[in-house]
């Protein structure tokens, strides 16, 4: 077995295990921590696929910023395992089964569909390097890039406006 294959299997195991942990843990803080671990595993996969830029960005943005935000909110609400509401087990079972069925459907579909796809090249190529990515980004995708900056602006303003503390006289309705 290849070092790559072993790495792949290990990283996949970590990813799936932590994902299950996110779903099944009682304490929301544990869920957040599991999710962070999942992101690390996925970044590992990115590196295996030689998408270095994305791997780093994944860590910085997702694990570093988004998850921290989640943590802040959870801690703000003072949630822990005592106050955690639970759906009744029938609904949970239904949810699990739905996910399982979806998995099976996609599985069976893709099994037959991927027989004719080209085999991936082993080894590294230059595709994921930041230099090449940057060139593609600023040559072909510069418009979405600019628009995404507007998107960020609007998200920031939106978040602030929504999260503002209201005056006492405003009505809820």
């Amino acid at each position: 077995m290849d070092i790559q294959q072993i790495l792949f299997i290990v990283l996949s195991a970590i990813a799936i295990g932590c994902a299950l942990g996110v779903v099944f843990s009682r304490n929301p803080i544990n869920s957040v921590l599991f999710l962070i671990l999942t992101f690390f595993a996925i970044s590992g996969h990115y590196i295996l696929l030689n998408a270095q830029f994305l791997a780093v960005v994944n860590i910085i943005v997702y694990a570093g910023a988004i998850m921290v935000l989640f943590l802040f909110v959870i801690m703000l609400m003072n949630l822990n395992s005592d106050t955690e509401p639970q759906k009744n087990w029938l609904v949970q079972l239904a949810g699990a089964i739905s996910g399982g069925i979806l998995f099976l459907v996609l599985l069976s579909a893709l099994v037959s569909a991927t027989k004719t796809l080209p085999v991936m090249e082993q080894g590294s190529n230059d595709l994921g390097l930041i230099k090449n990515l940057g060139k593609t980004l600023f040559r072909d995708y510069v418009l979405p890039f600019e628009i995404s900056s507007v998107l960020f602006l609007s998200a920031m303003i939106g978040a602030i406006v929504i999260g503002k503390k209201e005056d006492k006289f405003e009505d809820v309705h």
Binding site: H45, L79, A96, L102
Partner: peptide
């Protein structure tokens, strides 16, 4: 790795995510 491995991995994560959306009541976990 043949592409199927990545496909299955990705699909598994996706379906776990869906199962989680359906199973949890906490809005943040969802």
């Amino acid at each position: 790795m043949p592409i199927q491995y990545y496909l299955f991995l990705s699909m598994a994560l996706f379906c776990i995510g869906i199962a989680g959306t359906l199973m949890r009541r906490n809005a943040i976990i969802i």
